[in-house]
């Protein structure tokens, strides 16, 4: 499948993946995150149950302290 991840085109070998699997593949190991799938907020407890499919727009945004 081809998706848009953080504004970039990404291709994966599977037909669908969960958000947790994508985080694992892309090595996103951050503590504080905001995840939006097609502009809908996905909460932490939904990462492993939410399926991402071809054409989806996924944003995994790392929140770091500072301001």
């Amino acid at each position: 499948m081809k998706i848009t991840l953080n504004n970039r085109q990404e291709e994966f070998n599977s037909e669908t993946l969960t958000i947790s699997q994508i985080m694992e593949i892309k090595s996103f190991h951050f503590k504080m995150l905001v995840v939006r799938l097609n502009d809908t907020l996905i909460k932490r407890e939904e990462y492993s149950s939410t399926q991402v499919k071809n054409g989806d727009d996924l944003k995994i945004i790392h929140l770091v302290s500072g301001g």
Partner: peptide
């Protein structure tokens, strides 16, 4: 300043006030 506070505000606003644009900052 704090990342947990940032996440708290972002999640609250997106859930309860989704029509108000929210401009956040991360990494500076």
């Amino acid at each position: 300043d704090d990342a947990e506070q940032k996440q708290m505000l972002i999640e609250y606003m997106l859930t309860n006030h989704p029509n108000i644009p929210l401009i956040a900052a991360s990494g500076m």
